[in-house]
């Protein structure tokens, strides 16, 4: 009971304070609050409603999706669009390719970027500063101008239109190296020093001691890499041409340009959009707090 008393006292204190403030501000504050709720709910509807009616329309018939776009509940619920995705359209193949590529890219990026970030933060070697400055410079290379160069090099190396060409160029990013270096700069060296006296090799120490400590940064990098490679479009446009190598982004994009006969086929396209969004949506909801907080932390630092 004794432990409860102080918190009770605090709880008693709080309403009194807010009561006093409310008296000062009067009813106007409450109206303002109500207004701000209304604005927020209105805005939230604008942001979320498009997704809801899109999901709903993916269960409609082509005709109903076109005529009654706003309708929340389909008059006749049909799974035709989804059946076509798994029948006429090689959607499972696209999903498989995306899953394979995103997994390899994510694992590779987390590993290579943390290795490099660790070396740039902790290990002393000639040329370290030069390498770091080079990475900083590369950070500002706009991704979209790399489309033509990437195609050229993949063609030269004979990697064009292969899984290798789709994966290897994405295995490391300057931004990832930078995030990891910043993180290692922020944690104390003392534990590593102790391990070093024990005589652990550099890689063993990195693997068994440093990486487990770096979990927050690794999770951040994992989220960024997975979401980035799952949603990547440009690189997969210029690194392949075979239909068998289509990813979800390039494959679903080809649905939009109407390669499947006439008509707009909204339910089919929307079904594809819904399915391709589910994995990133799950990731987003699992790591929601972290995603929102990393950005905040990153900005503050």
């Amino acid at each position: 009971m004794t432990t409860v008393t102080p918190s009770l006292a605090g709880a008693e204190d709080a309403p009194k304070r807010s009561f006093r403030r409310r008296k000062v501000l009067g009813g106007r504050a409450r109206t303002a609050m109500l207004l701000s709720y209304l604005i927020l709910i209105g805005l939230a509807l604008i942001y979320i409603y498009p997704f809801i009616i899109s999901i709903s329309a993916s269960f409609k018939t082509d005709a109903e999706a076109t005529q009654d776009a706003l309708g929340l509940i389909p008059q006749t619920i049909t799974f035709a669009a989804y059946e076509r995705l798994f029948g006429d359209v090689p959607f499972p193949l696209w999903a498989g390719n995306t899953l394979l590529i995103s997994t390899v890219v994510t694992v590779g990026r987390v590993f290579f970027d943390s290795l490099a970030g660790y070396a740039l933060s902790r290990l002393r070697f000639r040329g370290r500063t030069a390498v770091f400055v080079a990475f900083i410079a590369i950070l500002s290379v706009p991704g979209v101008v790399l489309l033509i160069p990437r195609f050229l090099i993949l063609q030269q190396l004979g990697l064009y239109d292969t899984y290798g060409g789709m994966i290897i160029p994405l295995l490391s990013t300057a931004a990832g190296v930078f995030i990891m270096k910043q993180f290692f700069d922020s944690i104390p060296v003392s534990i590593e020093e102790a391990a070093r006296i024990d005589g652990a090799g550099t890689f063993r120490m990195f693997w068994t001691i440093v990486l487990p400590m770096a979990r927050p940064a690794l999770v951040t990098l994992f989220i960024l890499s997975f979401q980035g490679s799952w949603n990547e479009l440009g690189h997969f446009i210029v690194s392949r041409q075979s239909p068998e190598l289509n990813t979800l982004t390039t494959g679903v994009a080809s649905l939009v340009s109407g390669q499947l006969g006439s008509g707009n086929q909204f339910p089919l396209q929307l079904a594809a959009a819904v399915l391709m969004t589910i994995p990133v949506a799950i990731l987003f909801f699992i790591f929601q707090k972290r995603i929102m907080n990393t950005t905040e932390g990153g900005e503050k630092g």
Binding site: F125, I153, I168, S172, V177, T202
Partner: peptide, 27 residues
């Protein structure tokens, strides 16, 4: 440590050189 340092940054440096710096020259 110097050797380990270069080994650690090597994958990131090689990928950046081969798939970013050289391609830009080529383009």
């Amino acid at each position: 440590e110097a050797r380990a340092g270069w080994l650690f940054v090597a994958p990131a440096v090689v990928i950046t050189l081969v798939f970013l710096v050289i391609p830009i020259m080529l383009a």
